Amino acid sequence: MMLGKCRQPEQASLLFELMLSDGLTPTVDVYTALVSVYGKNGLLDKAFSTVDDMKSVSDCKPDVYTYSILINSCTKFNRPDLIEEILAEMSYLGIGCNTVIYNTLIDGYGKAEMFELMEDSLTDMIESGSCLPDVFTLNSFLGAYGKCGQIEKMEKWYDEFQLMGIRPDPKTFNILIKSYGKATMYEKMGSVMEFMKKRFFSPTVVTYNIVIEVFGKAGNVEKMDEYFRKMKYQGMKPNSITYCSLVSAYSKAGNMSKVDSILRQVENSDVILDTPFFNCIISAYGRAGDVRKVSELFLAMKEKKCLPDHITFATMIQAYNARGMTEAAEDLQKRMITNTENSGTRLIGC
């Protein structure tokens, strides 16, 4: 459905109005898609207004999925004060909280670091008698505490969920590895990987990307290279995220020959490159003062149909200014402004 693919709220709203003008009757799914677009862009007033419109249309009442999107938007944009209103409205309409709603609340509160509300929601979930925590609940708890460095809390809740009979999945282990890595607890990070082997959980590309990023950021290039070799030895195909971490680490270590090597590997592979990768490697050559390579990579972005963003332009402007190329930097500044204006007016692809 086209409306669901739109990312720009103005375009979604226009498409919705066109549907109405053509005499088409929106369904619950269509309205919910519009609520999602508004919610993802922080336009909560419009999202709530759309839900109110749904209630006035026969056979088009908001459902549990509509409200889960609304709740998720409120937590994402730090408006927990609106959630009680949503839950009260759901109760009035006879829509009970299901596992999806509870998990949405728990995940949202966790990401917003509202830990008391997160734990209260888990208690409500268990006491409801009809909804049980699952691996998604587990991962939300571990991710919330791990992300902010509360490792003891993370470990406590891992044990609690084990007692509930909830078993981890590969994502659980990736969360633990990333959390330990961020806290520079490398021994525990390794212990998780050993535990995965014993339980016959194979490391995924995501697992290796996390480990490579952790050691790269820590400046331990030797260890990073070791895991990159292991990744390839096990038949894992590196992706743009892998190469971003490698380029960033080599660049910070001043090892531009390694950056050159990565660029050759990427050029001779079928890896799908994206804007973040180009931003990373443009930044590396920019820091090294190689503006010729910076310009070449900028042209390569167009060939690969990767759209430059404000980070691309800012990185290049900084590189040109550092070399005293003020005229080229000013030209890029103008192109950045034009690019920003145009990105808000594209309709194709929404």
Rank of each mutant, 00 (worst) to 15 (best):
K258V: 00
G344M: 12
A329C: 04
E84V: 14
D270R: 11
K76N: 05
L307H: 08
Y145L: 09
I106R: 07
K258Y: 05
R167F: 12
I348S: 13
T340D: 11
G286I: 03
M336V: 06
V221Y: 02
L117R: 15
T338P: 00
A33M: 03
S49V: 05
N342Q: 15
C6G: 01
D290P: 00
A47N: 02
A253L: 10
V291R: 05
E187M: 14
M19S: 00
F173I: 09
L105T: 04
T204D: 06
S36G: 03
A47E: 05
I177R: 01
W157C: 02
G289K: 06
D169K: 11
L105S: 01
I210T: 14
S56C: 08
D81Y: 06
G4I: 09
Y38S: 01
A300G: 00
C97A: 11
T50M: 09
L142G: 04
I166T: 03
A88P: 00
T32Y: 01
A88I: 08
V28N: 02
K5D: 13
K223G: 00
M54S: 01
K61D: 05
D52S: 13
D59R: 14
Y227Q: 08
D59N: 15
E194K: 13
E194V: 01
T104L: 14
I95A: 04
G219R: 10
S245F: 10
A33E: 03
M301L: 01
Y109Q: 05
K55M: 14
G349S: 14
L44T: 09
Y186C: 02
L93R: 13
K55R: 12
Y158A: 12
E84S: 15
A47D: 07
C97K: 13
I272A: 12
K61L: 09
V271M: 15
